[in-house]
Amino acid sequence: MRKSRSGVLGVFAHLDTTTDAIRRLRSAGYDQLTVYSPTLRHEIEEALESSESPVRIFTLVGAFTGTGAGAALAIWSSLNWPLIVGGKEIVSLPAFSVIMFEVTILLGALATVAGLFINARLPRIGRPEALYHPSFTAGNFGVFAHVPRDRYDAVRNILTESGSEEVLVEQS
């Protein structure tokens, strides 16, 4: 679902006030939130009750594709020029298992990164999805509620009550 760009941003200096604001906003029915944090905190994920990331499916599919691709490359190219070397079978699976393993890891890793980029919408070119403050990578937390203009005051009150240091409003 596409979140609206208009809304209110609360800047927080503390983690507990941030999670408090998230809980209050969600219980008041404001579910469209973008939460900023300088580091990964599970407290925020818990407050948001976010669902499991689908990146793991990318990893799994990528890895198994890699196993198949590694096997296919080694087997097909050996059959394509069937030259016996060192008295070994043309299709020497124990030897090919190394290739299969390496390609499994390679494609698994690349698919994981693809999964990250697709799901996290990176790289983000142009305007960010919500109002941003550069202090979020330094030490502050932020909660942006995606709400229409007529709800600005209500949201601002919740943010201030929770302990927001600064409340910014999206002007556009």
């Binding site: 990964l40 994920e45 990146v55 999964g115 996290a120 983000r124 960010p128």
Partner: peptide, 21 residues
Amino acid sequence: ALGWRGTDREWKHFSRAYLFL
């Protein structure tokens, strides 16, 4: 930085991707 802003969505997928990597 690819437009990274440290949103909950980014961290959620980042933490999983990092774990699997």
